[in-house]
């Protein structure tokens, strides 16, 4: 594995008075897939959303500690959230394509950034949709509304939309939990294709999913990071009893 691209040190997050993250130290190497697992309310989604400052939208949130992305603190006073989110993209639980055509969805970020060259945009659309493994299904109706697609296709278009702005890191917040098993496995295949080129961090409730696709897995509980290791070790030979209980379904 290559060098660390994203590091979090002593990260605390409070919703008002309530401490939701209690000092997380977790680092990510460039490339590969890391899965964040843990019971509902353990803070894994909250943690994921601190990584591209999505929690800024929620009032009354206080965050302390540092998150460093390529040597720069994301929470520095002069940090530019717009630039951060171009580098660290996000895919959500509910597929959320914009109510425009598939084509427009994919190029939206670029077009607003000022890109006008039609040929270049066309190329980006095809490349991103291919990377997201949805090109063959949508190539004949690129100019139809993305809302007419199935949930799984919508989610892959959303992944393509993120890929089109060429981020370094892709955050996924339970991207398959609203989808049927077939669509889920297509998304998983998509992610496996992307793992050589992007740093992927995925929150999932589905342990099998984590074991199938993740290189590393981090187990969260009650706002703390219990354990992080190679996925194989977490599932076959966890170091902590809490992890073992959760993995084996004996949840205490």
């Amino acid at each position: 594995m290559s060098k660390e691209i994203l590091t979090t040190q002593d990260l605390h997050l409070y919703y008002g008075e309530k401490e939701a993250l209690k000092g997380i130290n977790l680092n990510f190497d460039a490339k590969g897939i890391t899965a964040l697992i843990g019971p509902s309310g353990c803070g894994k989604s909250t943690y994921l959303r601190t990584l591209n400052r999505m929690n800024d939208l929620i009032p009354n949130v206080t965050i302390t500690g540092t998150i460093t992305f390529k040597g720069e603190n994301l929470y520095a006073p002069n940090a530019d959230t717009v630039e951060i989110r171009k580098e660290i993209g996000m895919v959500f639980q509910q597929p959320n394509p914009f109510p425009f055509s598939i084509y427009d969805n994919v190029i939206y970020g670029l077009r607003i950034a000022g890109e006008k060259d039609k040929e270049k945009l066309d190329a980006v659309v095809e490349k991103s949709l291919r990377q997201a493994a949805v090109w063959d299904e949508v190539k004949d109706h690129l100019h139809e509304s993305a809302l007419a697609l199935s949930g799984g296709q919508q989610q892959r278009v959303c992944i393509a939309r993120v890929l089109a702005v060429s981020p370094e890191i892709i955050l996924l917040d339970e991207p398959t939990s609203a989808l049927d098993p077939v669509s889920s496995s297509q998304i998983e295949a998509t992610l496996l294709n992307l793992r050589h080129d992007y740093t992927i961090i995925i929150v999932t409730h589905n342990l099998q999913q984590a074991s199938r696709i993740a290189d590393r897995t981090a187990f969260f509980m009650n706002g703390e990071l219990v354990e992080v290791d190679q996925t194989k070790n977490i599932f076959m030979n966890p170091a902590k009893k809490q992890t073992e209980d959760y993995i084996s379904g004996r949840f205490g």
């Binding site: 591209n52 999505m54 939208l57 959230t81 717009v82 630039e83 951060i84 989110r85 171009k86 580098e87 993209g89 996000m90 895919v91 959500f92 509910q94 959320n96 394509p97 914009f98 109510p99 425009f100 939206y108 970020g109 607003i112 950034a113 959303c158 939309r161 993120v162 702005v165």
Partner: peptide, 27 residues
């Protein structure tokens, strides 16, 4: 317009204003 649409816009690196004018208002 769902919160997800706003998050989707922001997560693409659009500013708040761009999200409002280019995603929310058209929708």
């Amino acid at each position: 317009i769902n919160l997800e649409q706003r998050e989707g816009g922001l997560a693409l690196g659009l500013s708040r204003w761009e999200t409002v004018t280019r995603v929310i208002l058209p929708a």
